[in-house]
């Protein structure tokens, strides 16, 4: 178990968005979080990556309490994430966009930049090489030198993956990675996720496309109204009465 949440809770004013959720993310597997709209999935993600501070509960990463850490500190520990919409610098090339992803593993500062020290040269090279490596991993070498504004939606998603991978993560959180792209492309991204797991990178994603999740995920958690209603393999989830009720909105026998 790589990450564990203990009674994780987030309240906004009087509303409870995430309510006492206990969840574990298994190392080297594809973990998925599903649930109807407004179930608190994105909030849960934001709690794990440090974007929100929990109202109560804990997040444990490799035995260390990271509940109160800022997002950049969490990223340095090896937790990466993507967003539903990817903000790329459109006037820059794809490669330039990804280079900064490895920044957190470098130490060169303003003086190195101004004085062009040896460390500066070494680390610039290191970041560039890392960017090339991850772009190769996500199969984008061919658009590397194109302007980020000119590539397709699916390619932008892959750039977002590359940016996350450039941070040398142990676990990657993907927020609806296949939203807004067609079925064929979805499959490609699913393959990419499996490829990541083979590289010993744990994957955790939020997804709406049920069919894909059931095939892809090793472990699934279902959220509804901010509460965990089921957890298990896709088979267990598909036969869980609570899940059926949440999705179909009626009782299971109907």
């Amino acid at each position: 178990m790589l990450i564990e949440t203990k009674k994780l809770t987030k309240r906004f004013g009087g509303n409870v968005a995430v309510n006492e959720v206990d969840f574990t993310i298994e190392e080297g597997k594809i973990n998925a979080i599903i649930g109807p709209n407004g179930a608190g999935k994105s909030t849960f993600f934001n709690l794990l990556s440090g974007s929100y501070t929990p109202s109560a509960g804990q997040v444990i990463y490799k035995g260390k309490d990271i509940t109160k850490l800022s997002p950049d500190r969490i990223a340095k520990l090896g937790v990466a994430r993507t967003f539903q919409t990817t903000n790329l610098f459109e006037q820059s090339t794809v490669l330039d966009n990804v280079i900064v992803g490895h920044r957190l593993r470098t130490k060169s500062n303003l003086w190195d930049a101004v004085l062009r020290t040896k460390r500066f040269a070494k680390e610039e090279k290191k970041c560039r090489e890392k960017a090339m490596e991850v772009l190769d991993f996500v199969d984008l070498t061919h658009v590397m030198n194109q302007q980020a504004g000119s590539i397709t939606q699916e390619e932008k998603k892959r750039v977002a993956f590359a940016l996350a991978l450039a941070t040398d993560p142990e676990v990657v959180f993907l927020d609806e990675p296949t939203a807004g792209i067609n079925p064929g492309e979805t499959e490609g991204l699913a393959d990419l996720m499996e490829k990541m797991v083979k590289r010993k990178i744990t994957v955790c994603l939020i997804e709406h496309k049920m069919k894909m999740i059931m095939k892809l995920a090793d472990k699934i958690m279902v959220l509804n109204y901010g509460e965990k209603i089921a957890e298990g393999t896709s088979e267990q989830i598909m036969n869980d009465p609570a899940v059926i009720e949440a999705y179909l909105g009626g009782d299971a026998s109907a």
Partner: peptide
Amino acid sequence: IAIRNSEDLAQTIGI
């Protein structure tokens, strides 16, 4: 420049 593009994204890549 990463901060200009998106502060949230910048933070999650460890900046």
